[in-house]
Amino acid sequence: MFYPNSPQTSPQLTQIPYGQQYAMMQRQIQQPYHPFATTEPQARLYPYHYQGPIQQEQGGFITQQSTAASPQYVQMRVTPVDQSIMSGYPNQTANGSSSSSFNYNIHPQQQQQQQQQQQQLRHHAMPVGSVPLQDDRYRKQLIVNYLAPDVTSTDLHELFSRFGELDGARIIYDKQTNMSKGYGFVYFCHAEDAKEAVERMSGYEFHGKWLKVGYSTNPLNIVPSNSSPYVHAGSRGAAG
């Protein structure tokens, strides 16, 4: 039997160049792979992502010199942007860049009308829970959420009447099932009393439920100042 490094198959040491006398086997001759043993700084910083320098080929596509990437890492192929796409944008300079302001050559009167329309939209648009300043009635009506099913309009009136005089209180019921929808409205005579009720009743436990109280901004629920107070009856038909 002959071994790869046996004296019968191995040459004389004098015939082997210096430095390879003890590297006779194939696994010894093959050098191990060192990912950080390279002179390129990109490979030292990113050993798993770097795959060699990027070269520009004919046709405008950018390719990489090395083989496919590892399945664990996804390499994105980048193509140059066609400058003709950006030619339609206004205020574009000769080098292809555009300024931040756009001039669509709008007539001054049209621009003024658009600004007025935007101001009107901001004036009428009102986020949930906010209180408008032009109508004091919005500051007097509250919406009470997360009410228990057994709470009546009379219970709601008695709960909030300790903060001040009320114009009314009612629970909203479903017309088909005649069941409470879980929320109601309270109408105060003074805005200061309503503000105190919002601050003190939010998070209050009532009939096993934690109440959420806020201003009601729905104009359909506003009680006119010259109208008669609501009837605080315990029956659902009268309260709904």
Rank of each mutant, 00 (worst) to 15 (best):
Q56E: 10
Q31S: 08
Q83I: 15
Q26L: 14
L147W: 02
Q92L: 13
G208F: 00
R77F: 15
Y230W: 07
F102A: 03
F160I: 01
V198K: 08
Y230N: 04
Y215S: 00
Q31A: 11
R27A: 12
S225F: 05
L147I: 15
N226K: 02
L220E: 00
G203A: 02
C189W: 02
P17G: 10
Y146W: 00
N91F: 14
S87R: 09
S66C: 12
I54N: 09
Y204P: 00
L147N: 06
I85K: 06
Q55N: 10
G168A: 06
P149C: 06
N103A: 05
P71V: 12
R139I: 11
G19V: 13
E205A: 13
M76Y: 13
Y138Q: 03
G208Y: 02
F185T: 00
F188Y: 05
A125E: 07
A68C: 14
G237F: 06
E158Y: 13
P41I: 11
H107I: 11
V144A: 00
H207Q: 04
A43S: 06
G184I: 00
C189V: 04
P32Q: 07
P149M: 04
G164S: 01
G96N: 04
N91R: 08
A191C: 06
P11C: 09
D135P: 05
N145F: 00
D167A: 05
K140D: 00
G168P: 04
F160T: 03
G88T: 06
Q116D: 06
Q51I: 14
Y146Q: 00
Q15G: 12
G96A: 05
Q109I: 15
Q26W: 15
M76P: 06
P90D: 09
Q55Y: 15
V231Y: 12
S70C: 10
P17K: 02
P32A: 06
F36M: 15
Q109E: 10
F163S: 03
W210H: 04
Q116R: 08
K212S: 00
A43T: 13
P108N: 11
E165Q: 12
Q113A: 12
Q12D: 07
Q64C: 13
F102W: 12
N226A: 07
G52V: 13
I16T: 04
V231S: 09
V151Y: 05
V198S: 03
P127D: 06
N103G: 08
M24N: 06
Q92H: 06
Q141V: 01
E165P: 13
Q51P: 11
Y89C: 03
Y50T: 12
V213D: 00
V198Q: 08
P224Q: 07
I171N: 02
Q64L: 15
Q31T: 07
I85F: 07
Q15E: 08
Q72T: 08
S97T: 12
H34N: 12
S130F: 11
I16F: 11
G59A: 09
V231G: 09
L13R: 05
A197Y: 06
M24A: 07
Q58C: 15
R170G: 00
F185Y: 00
T38C: 15
A37D: 12
A125T: 12
H190Q: 09
H123K: 03
Q31V: 15
H157F: 08
R137F: 07
T154A: 09
P35H: 09
M76T: 05
M24D: 03
G214A: 08
P47G: 12
Y173H: 04
Q56K: 02
L159I: 04
Q117S: 08
P4N: 08
I62W: 12
F185E: 00
P53H: 13
P149H: 09
W210I: 03
A191V: 05
Y3P: 02
F36I: 02
G164P: 06
S216C: 00
Y22N: 05
T38V: 15
Q75A: 08
R44A: 10
P80G: 02
E40D: 14
Q115Y: 14
F102C: 06
H34K: 03
I62D: 09
M25F: 09
Y89T: 09
R162L: 11
V78N: 08
P4T: 10
F185L: 00
P108W: 12
A68E: 04
I85T: 06
H107L: 12
P108G: 14
Q115H: 08
W210D: 02
R44E: 08
S235C: 05
G184P: 06
T217R: 03
Q65S: 08
G59K: 09
Q64V: 15
Q118E: 11
M201A: 03
I106V: 07
Q55D: 07
G240D: 05
P32S: 05
Q26G: 10
Q31L: 13
V78G: 05
Q15Y: 06
Q51S: 10
A69I: 11
Q51D: 11
Q117H: 08
D135W: 06
Y183W: 00
K140H: 02
V231C: 04
E165N: 12
Q55K: 03
N103R: 10
V81S: 08
H107P: 09
S100P: 12
S153A: 04
S10W: 14
R236F: 01
E158T: 10
K209R: 05
P71H: 09
D193I: 01
T177W: 08
G60K: 04
E199Q: 09
Q115T: 06
A197N: 00
H123Q: 10
D136I: 05
F102R: 04
I29Q: 05
H232A: 03
E57W: 15
Y146P: 00
Q116G: 11
S227V: 10
S161L: 09
N5D: 12
E199G: 08
Q51G: 13
Q134Y: 10
Q12M: 11
T152A: 10
A238K: 03
G182K: 02
N218G: 00
Q118V: 10
G96S: 04
P229H: 14
K181L: 02
L121N: 04
L142W: 05
L147P: 10
Q28G: 10
M86E: 01
E205S: 13
A169C: 05
H34G: 13
V144C: 05
Q31Y: 14
P11N: 10
G214P: 01
Q120E: 06
Y48E: 03
N221F: 14
T63H: 10
D193T: 03
R44F: 15
Q20A: 03
E57I: 12
M25V: 06
A191P: 14
T9A: 06
V198I: 07
V74Q: 10
K181H: 01
E165T: 12
P4D: 03
Y215H: 01
G182C: 15
Q109A: 11
H49T: 10
P7F: 15
Y18Q: 09
Q20P: 11
G182W: 01
Q72K: 05
L45D: 06
Q111E: 07
S228H: 14
N91E: 11
S202A: 12
N218T: 01
P53I: 15
S130R: 11
M76V: 13
E192Q: 05
A69D: 11
G203D: 01
S153W: 14
F163Y: 11
I172Y: 01
Q20Y: 15
F163Q: 01
H190R: 10
Y183I: 00
G168N: 02
T9Y: 15
V128Q: 11
Q21L: 09
L147R: 03
R162K: 10
V144Q: 03
I16P: 06
S10V: 14
C189A: 07
H207L: 01
Q176T: 10
R77L: 15
I106R: 05
E57A: 12
P224H: 14
Q21S: 04
P53V: 14
P17E: 01
Q72M: 13
H49W: 15
D135L: 03
N221K: 09
L156Y: 10
G60C: 14
H34L: 11
E196F: 11
A68V: 12
V128E: 10
K209L: 00
N5K: 08
S180Q: 04
V231Q: 05
Y215I: 01
Y215A: 00
I54F: 11
N218I: 00
T154R: 06
S6I: 11
V151F: 00
S97Y: 15
N178M: 13
Q20R: 03
D155V: 03
Q113W: 15
E40W: 12
Q42N: 09
Q56Y: 15
P149L: 02
Y138M: 02
Q58D: 12
P47Y: 15
Q134T: 08
Q119H: 06
Q75W: 15
V223P: 06
A125N: 09
S10D: 11
P149G: 07
Q8R: 05
H107V: 10
Q118A: 09
M201W: 01
T38E: 04
N178F: 12
H34T: 08
C189D: 01
P127M: 13
M126Y: 12
T217S: 04
W210S: 01
R236D: 02
